[in-house]
């Protein structure tokens, strides 16, 4: 059943609507699982998961015990207008949780989303990368929630689980707010902005069904990926550009590199010179690789997870 979570009137003949698809199984009572995506308007990988998950659940309601709420678009105006943020609002929506029901429209909206999800047995917040980077499917977990979430993360069929340090500025994310409110929330990153990678989407959909089965909510089939790598910040190397130009990758995404291997080059189209050769500082898995060619000094080119054979 399609339900409206939040509605606000826009100036001329339109409402901003946040909607969810509430799918209730006929297999009896069970947990409530929330699947959220589209907080950032340029991250579309979750759109496929929302579609595919709803399609599979609706075709086998007897195998579902409990409720799955799917929120495909927390930032509908952003998705609609190909913007990461919300039009006419300065802050990243994912820095406004848990929201404020008496605040500006964006914060009223995030408060409504928060209130609607709060109390679910588990929540999965699906992001893609932005348009600049391509990511292997991964779950990111704040170290403060690691004890509760690390055991659940492998069920989502991701390649690895990244436990990262806590930062004050991240306390206003949806995941942090929900975890603080007692709703276990896993953040998934996969693919690249403004594109859909169906292979990743199918794996994640199966992963969500696997998680649902773990919670006793799903009795149907699902694919189980091999056990992911669990890593911490100290094992991740960042490669940033030191020169402006165009980045041309030379290594293949999602492969294991040896120390010193060329990840890519930065070329200057005006002079015809290669201005930088980017090499891997360590042996490891190339889990993030730049997808957008134009780079400035500081542009992130790659992330490498060390100590991988």
């Amino acid at each position: 059943m399609i339900e409206t979570v939040f509605s606000a009137e826009l100036p001329v003949g339109e409402h901003l609507l946040i909607q969810k698809n509430r799918i209730v199984g006929t297999g009896g009572p069970g947990p409530r699982i929330a699947i959220v995506t589209g907080v950032h308007g340029d991250e579309l990988e979750g759109q496929y998961v929302a579609f595919e998950l709803a399609r599979r659940l609706k075709s086998a309601l007897h195998l579902l015990s409990g409720t799955v709420d799917i929120y495909p678009a927390v930032n509908p105006l952003g998705i609609n207008s190909i913007q990461r943020g919300m039009p006419l609002f300065d802050l990243d929506l994912n820095r406004t949780f848990p929201g404020n029901g008496n605040g500006p429209m964006a914060e009223t909206m995030t408060a409504a989303v928060m209130d609607d999800i709060r109390g679910a047995d588990v929540c999965v917040d699906i992001h893609a990368s932005n348009i600049f980077l391509r990511e292997m499917p991964q779950v990111r977990i704040n170290e403060l929630s690691a004890d509760q979430l690390v055991p659940l993360a492998p069920l989502l069929n991701v390649d690895f689980v990244w436990v990262h340090a806590s930062a004050t500025v991240l306390e206003s994310t949806l995941a942090y707010s929900l975890n603080s409110a007692g709703t276990p929330t896993l953040v998934v990153e996969a693919g690249v902005g403004m594109r859909i990678t169906e292979e990743y989407g199918r794996r994640l959909t199966d992963g969500i069904l696997r998680l649902a089965a773990h919670l006793g909510a799903w009795k149907g089939d699902f694919y189980s990926a091999p056990e992911p790598i669990v890593s911490h910040d100290g094992e991740v190397s960042y490669l940033n550009a030191e020169h402006a130009g165009i980045f041309l990758p030379r290594a293949k995404h999602a492969t294991v590199l040896h120390e010193g291997e060329v990840v890519g080059i930065i070329a200057d189209p005006l002079s015809g010179d290669v201005v930088e050769e980017v090499r891997s500082p360590r042996a490891g898995l190339l889990f993030t690789l730049r997808a957008y060619p134009i780079v400035y000094p500081g542009s992130l080119l790659a992330r490498i997870l060390g100590d991988i054979q």
């Binding site: 606000a8 100036p11 001329v12 901003l16 500006p104």
Partner: peptide, 8 residues
């Protein structure tokens, strides 16, 4: 000149 609902 325009305003949304729930705007301060």
């Amino acid at each position: 000149p325009l305003i949304n609902q729930y705007t301060i």
